[in-house]
Each structure stands twice: as structure tokens, then as C-alpha cells.
Design a protein around this nucleic acid. Structure first.
Length: 177
DNA sequence: TCAACCTGGTAGG
DNA sequence: CCTACCAGGTTGA
């Protein structure tokens, strides 16, 4: 018997919109959980494979409800009470470690890229941490926006710095500039 | 092997 | 405070 799926990258994916007061986000699910979240307007229609070909499994709909609730809370600057399972298997070991640290930064708090580098045992890898943040497939819920430069500067944000500013603002964090 | 990155630290105006 | 510069870890091509 051939396994149906050895890794999430090979699996069919389902994309569902999350309507919020800040626009319509797009959530993407694998067989393991939420694999991606895109900001409103982000084209990148990439690897979607469901194509409306079938009904969305109940399990995925349940995850999606959790996603919608969590995103709603996060956009208000609150800590989501519950998250759907996150499928972060698409990342390298280093990146998954970094994302793990990100998930432990609570709303209203921040860390610097260098601090995270030290936290994962790679003191000199601050820049690589930036790369890992940029590769984060689930922004907002995996809060890469809570990472600032060592001088408290804003740093970067692949989703657009306006979003980073907005998210930090909602959490009551003032950024210089 | 190489260049691209969401860096950090130092040195100089 | 600001610009210039470079060492630096990880990744994907």
C-alpha cells in the first residue's frame, strides 16, 4: 500500500478566505493544519489545488473557524485564545526553531533579531533570523511582526511595513519613526 | 560556490 | 542623530 501523503508539500491544499475589518485574508490548509496565511491583496495564487473540486472537509472547516477567531483577536491586538494546528513542516530546522521562539512572544512584547539568534543558540545569526522571519508562512498568528531591530528600529516585513506598524500599534507598541 | 536577506556593531561626520 | 562599511549565518539556485 502506497502512503497517501508523505509530506504536506505533496498534499492537496484548501484555500479559504477570512473576512476581517482589515480586508480579506487567505488561509491555506494542508492535511496537517494551517500552512499559510496571506494578507489581503497578496496575489501569489500559487499552489492551490482544491480548485473548488470538492466539498471542504469538516475538519478543515473546524480549523478555519479557529483561524478566523484567532485572526480576529490578533488584529485587535489581543492574544488569541486558541489556534488551529499549524503545519510548519515546510521550513528548515533553523527556521522552525526561530518560528518556535516567535510563537512564545506574547502580544505587546517584542524581541530583537539578535535576541532570537541567541535564543536558538546561534548568537551570530541575527541576519539569518531576519531571513527566517521573512520566510514565515503564517504571519500575524506566528507573530514575526514582534521582532524589531536591536536599536528598536522597525526592521523589515515582507508583508509590507504598513502591516507591521499596524499590528504593533494595535498591541500598544510604539515604534520610533 | 554565490548572492540575497526583515542584522548588528563600529567608525566617522 | 546620521551615513558608510563590513563581518556574519542560512538558504536556494
Amino acid at each position: 500500500m502506497i502512503p497517501v501523503c508523505m509530506n504536506s508539500f505533496m498534499c492537496n491544499r484548501v484555500e479559504l478566505p477570512v473576512k476581517t475589518s482589515d480586508g480579506s485574508f487567505m488561509a491555506c490548509y494542508s492535511g496537517e493544519g494551517l500552512v499559510g496565511l496571506r494578507f489581503p491583496g497578496d496575489a501569489e495564487a500559487g499552489l492551490k489545488r482544491n480548485g473548488g473540486a470538492g466539498a471542504v472537509p469538516e475538519r478543515v472547516r473546524a480549523w478555519h473557524r479557529l483561524t478566523a477567531d484567532a485572526l480576529g483577536a490578533a488584529l485587535e491586538g489581543r492574544e488569541p485564545r486558541r489556534l488551529p494546528p499549524l503545519d510548519l513542516s515546510g521550513g528548515t530546522l533553523f527556521r522552525r526553531r526561530v518560528w518556535g521562539v516567535l510563537r512564545n512572544i506574547r502580544a505587546g512584547r517584542t524581541l530583537s533579531y539578535g535576541e532570537i539568534a541567541r535564543a536558538v543558540g546561534r548568537p551570530g545569526a541575527a541576519r539569518a533570523v531576519g531571513g527566517a522571519c521573512g520566510a514565515n508562512p503564517i504571519p500575524v498568528l506566528v507573530p514575526c511582526h514582534r521582532v524589531l531591530a536591536a536599536d528598536s528600529g522597525l526592521g523589515g516585513f515582507s508583508g509590507g511595513l504598513k502591516w507591521k506598524r499596524l499590528l504593533l500599534e494595535r498591541e500598544g507598541i510604539r515604534v520610533r519613526g
